[in-house]
Amino acid sequence: MPDPLLTLANVESAYGPVRAIRGVSLSVPPASIVAVLGANGAGKTTILKTISGIIDPQKGSVHFKGEAIHGMDPAGIVRRGLCHVPEGREVFPMLSVLDNLMMGAYTRTDRDGVRRDLEQVFGYFPILKERAKQQAGLLSGGQQQMLAISRAIMGQPELMLLDEPSLGLSPKLTREIFDIVVRINRERGTTLLLVEQNAAIALEVADYGYVLEVGRIVMEDTCERLREKEDIREFYLGMKDAGARGERRWKRKKTWR
């Protein structure tokens, strides 16, 4: 296995007195898609915010390309090739779609590269080209998600953090977005760290998965194997094995085995 692109070792982060993640260790190999699954409040978003420098970890370390990036300024982290697509889109509502995309490339100085990436982004999401002059706030939710992903691509990241890209989208749109996400990974070689509630689709596109519960990682494996685990099937994919009599009289407990 090649050296991981990103490694978290024993990271603990808190919002004031509330400890959101308690000793998380994970690693992301280059050019892969890694998914973090977990329920609401498990600490998924906190992990991403800690990686991109929005909050500083209290303990532990974050290494990106062999360099410690915890405690670094978010702008410095972006410049090193790590872009974050935040939960809930967070586009700049009164700026045009084009300006939004150019803001994604704020840290770059290579104009030709920026233009090339802009063309590629418009290739992925033709609707954005059509609406390039419109205010981003007038786009639909799905289009805003496309814009948020595209904006991150414009930063030419080696590692892209994707926080709940399916939030508030129809199943069909979710499908479309994930198809593009996989294409970004395959065509640009961008490594992806994906946080998702929609476990079915996340386990389908990702290579490796971590399961997070109340701030701790309780299970990790390749996604193929995760899909077969009983706990995942029942609690994340909602598939129940019927008992011998066709119904079950007890509630299963998670064992994480």
């Binding site: 929005i54 978010p74 586009v91």
Partner: peptide, 24 residues
């Protein structure tokens, strides 16, 4: 100008500006 648009961006969504690496 790039700086001017970035200032607008900050005023509209400061958190996202941080995410984009804009020196807020």
């Amino acid at each position: 100008t790039r700086v001017g648009v970035a200032m607008q961006a900050i005023s509209q969504n400061q958190l996202a500006a941080y995410y984009m690496g804009i020196p807020v």
